[in-house]
Computed example of a mutant assay.
Amino acid sequence: MALPGLIPSALIGAVAGARAMTPMAVLAAARLAGGRTPGRLFLLDGPLFRSGALVLGVGELLGDKLRSAPDRTAPLGLLARTLSAGIAGAALAPHGRERAGAVLAVGAAAPLAYLTLGGRRRAMSRMGQTRSGLIEDALVIAAGAAVVAFALRRR
């Protein structure tokens, strides 16, 4: 299985570029619903990890609406996106290709953080921080859920 099998990994990296914790929260929700990821990743089997991922995902969505929320391209934001993308990219990669999936996801996350920040700033100037954030949340959650559902169905 060459590059096409790694497409979900790259796409989940793009999701991480917009929302750092969404990939982990969507994966945790899929695991709670009984879904199995193609890549082997022991972290997803731990109840503490799954619960933490869901809490962090919701917390990020709420915190993003605060005026004091840092840009997604701040060093800690990029670190969180990189870690989340790598873990999720590995989980969605075909078994035995987890490392390649992680690399692709990380490679997509950082540039997409800058690209989505530019789009969000333009949207904020037109409709405000909260409204633009809610629209972005809906798009990112839908994209993350679609990528994970596609990857789990292909398994």
Rank of each mutant, 00 (worst) to 15 (best):
R126P: 03
L44K: 06
L3G: 12
P70V: 07
T130Q: 12
D71A: 10
S51Y: 09
V140S: 01
G89P: 09
D45N: 08
V103A: 15
R131W: 11
D71Y: 01
R153M: 13
G128K: 05
P47W: 14
L115F: 12
S132T: 09
I7R: 07
A100N: 00
R50K: 12
P8F: 07
G133D: 00
L112T: 10
I135M: 14
L83A: 15
R31S: 12
A30C: 11
T73A: 02
F150Q: 13
G35N: 03
G46T: 11
M124L: 14
L115A: 15
A2P: 10
A110I: 15
G89K: 07
A18W: 02
T116A: 02
G34M: 09
A14R: 05
G59D: 11
L78G: 02
R19M: 00
S9H: 11
A138W: 03
A88C: 06
A10E: 06
V15L: 06
V140Q: 01
V106D: 04
G144V: 02
V58T: 03
V140E: 00
A145R: 12
R122P: 04
E136A: 13
G63Y: 03
A105L: 03
G101D: 08
I87D: 04
D71F: 00
A109N: 01
S132D: 08
T37Q: 14
G39Y: 02
A80F: 05
T130N: 11
G144Q: 01
M127L: 09
V15M: 04
L76F: 14
G59R: 12
A143P: 01
A20Y: 02
A16V: 05
I87M: 10
F150Y: 13
T116D: 00
R155N: 15
L43F: 14
L139N: 09
A25T: 06
A146C: 09
P111T: 05
R31E: 08
R97F: 00
L44G: 13
T116G: 00
R120Q: 14
A113R: 01
G52W: 04
L32K: 09
K65E: 10
I12K: 01
M124R: 14
T130I: 15
R120M: 12
F49A: 15
E98L: 05
L115V: 14
L56W: 12
V103E: 13
P111H: 05
A143L: 11
A18Y: 02
A29M: 12
L43C: 09
A25Y: 04
G17S: 04
R31Y: 05
I12M: 08
P111W: 06
A110C: 13
L32S: 06
L56Q: 12
G39S: 06
R131M: 12
R40M: 10
P70L: 07
L78D: 02
I87R: 08
G119V: 06
V147K: 00
A123D: 09
R126W: 10
Q129A: 14
H95C: 06
R67E: 13
A29L: 15
A143F: 12
G63P: 03
R120K: 11
A110K: 09
